[in-house]
Amino acid sequence: MQALATTTERVPEGLLLAQPVLDAHAQLLLPEGTPVTREILNNLQHRGIDTIFVNAPEELAQRNGKVDPVEQRVLTEQRLLHLFRPALRAGQLNPLLHMILRHRLEERP
């Protein structure tokens, strides 16, 4: 099963945690498989946890036998954010990331 790292600001509700979430003292906050809710995301942000691992949306869609376009868009964005994570951690604005996102996410007939 593929897991994606994503920021707590960008993860959509309803995805499942692919890894347990631990605090700074290695105390278990949330077990693997927990469904992500807005309340959980707010709590994690309040604790200073900004990255979590969730199951890839495309795998969830494959389990249902269909591919949801919204989930596909989320997956594309998460993959690009993962690739650009060193620049994002450094707080650098990356025009290339924005151009690629715009290109990949534009609606096509």
Rank of each mutant, 00 (worst) to 15 (best):
T7P: 02
T8Y: 15
E9T: 08
E9C: 06
E9I: 04
R10M: 03
R10W: 00
R10T: 10
V11Y: 03
V11G: 00
V11D: 00
V11K: 03
P12Q: 06
P12Y: 00
E13P: 08
G14Y: 13
G14F: 11
G14V: 13
L15E: 13
L15W: 11
L15Q: 11
L15G: 06
L16M: 07
L16K: 06
L16Y: 11
L16I: 07
L17D: 02
L17I: 05
Q19V: 05
P20N: 00
P20S: 02
V21K: 01
V21I: 03
V21N: 04
L22N: 01
D23N: 13
D23P: 08
D23Q: 12
D23L: 10
A24C: 08
A24D: 08
H25V: 06
H25P: 11
A26C: 13
A26R: 14
A26V: 13
A26T: 13
Q27L: 03
Q27T: 07
L29G: 03
L29W: 07
L30W: 11
L30S: 08
L30Y: 09
P31W: 01
E32H: 12
E32N: 06
E32T: 05
G33H: 05
G33V: 03
T34I: 08
T34M: 10
T34C: 11
T34H: 05
T34E: 15
R38W: 11
E39M: 06
I40T: 09
I40F: 05
L41F: 02
L41N: 00
N42W: 09
N43S: 15
L44A: 14
L44R: 02
L44G: 09
Q45K: 13
Q45V: 12
H46L: 15
H46C: 09
